[in-house]
């Protein structure tokens, strides 16, 4: 069930110069949220910026009703959210969208994060590592520089095996995270059970993940970002092109996603 609540900021932590971890009190949403789902947050009561901003749920604590969001400052809305002081309140709608489906027990999983896309994957890694029969988790986390490898210890701590990748080599391996996914998939090719891949990050990264996984015939789920109006499926503003023969040509990131089976999307027609 989607609820609309006024959520109080309980803790604010400046994780890097451009990332803030916000803990808000949102019991109704925290109780229901699944990894990959998001909240639609009203950054200001003023009319400018007018529209809500979507942010992934990074962690929930059902017992206390806490919900964690990882905010990267990229513009006015995210700046307003990141600058919130303890005690401030935000209007939140959630949980929204379709999250990551968990793989059958025994399936090895590979989590591929790009930048702030790590947020929903931390939540997923937590669910996978605390499952009744825990999964073998390979974590790959890429970013421009060490600074953007935000919250990497929390991510790495849930993984069986973890590789950090930066474009400038300032931390971990140097290169693109998808180069390391390619190596990883090649090494897995002879296994009896192929891994399932989960990815969240910038669109070019997701397109590369989709391409690699289709080459290796590996199932991949990707979480997309689009500008949103309503966030609940009503306005048809957040769509991306579908590759499925049945159903509409354009599907809604907020309602049909944000998590999609990579093969269900038309990557050729994907807007920037």
């Amino acid at each position: 069930m989607i609820t609309s609540i006024s959520a109080r900021v309980e803790r604010r932590e400046q994780v890097t110069p451009v990332h803030v971890l916000l803990r808000v009190h949102a019991p109704e949403i925290a109780a229901d949220a699944q990894p990959g789902q998001f909240v639609h947050l009203r950054a200001s009561e003023a009319y400018d910026p007018l529209l809500r901003r979507p942010f992934s749920v990074m962690r929930t604590e059902a017992a206390t009703g806490a919900l964690d969001l990882l905010i990267q400052v990229v513009g006015r809305g995210s700046r307003l959210v990141a600058d919130a002081v303890t005690g401030a309140t935000f209007d939140l709608l959630g949980p929204l969208g379709v999250g990551f489906p968990l793989p059958p027990p025994g399936t090895p999983v590979s989590l591929v994060a790009g930048g702030v896309g790590v947020a929903p994957l931390i939540f997923l890694a937590e669910a996978l590592s605390s499952a009744a029969s825990p999964y073998e988790i390979t974590g790959l986390f890429g970013a421009r520089t060490a600074e953007f490898l935000c919250c990497w210890t929390e991510f790495a701590g849930r993984c069986t095996r973890f590789t950090a990748v930066t474009e400038d080599g300032s931390t971990g391996q140097q290169g693109l995270v998808t180069d390391f996914l390619a190596q990883h998939l090649a090494a897995q090719a002879s296994r009896r059970v192929l891994p399932t891949v989960y990815a969240c990050g910038p669109l070019p990264m997701l397109a590369a993940v989709a391409h690699l996984c289709s080459e290796h015939e590996v199932t991949a789920f990707v979480s997309l970002e689009r500008w949103m109006g309503c966030g609940v499926g009503a306005c048809l503003g957040c769509v991306v092109p579908s590759a499925r023969a049945e159903g509409p040509r354009y599907v809604r990131v907020c309602k049909d996603g944000p998590v999609f089976l990579a093969g269900d999307l038309d990557w050729q027609a994907m807007p920037e």
Binding site: L50, G229, G237, C238, V239, R249, Y250, P271
Partner: peptide, 11 residues
Amino acid sequence: REGNPPPRICE
């Protein structure tokens, strides 16, 4: 109708 290609909205 399939509608227009995205991006479809902008603040």
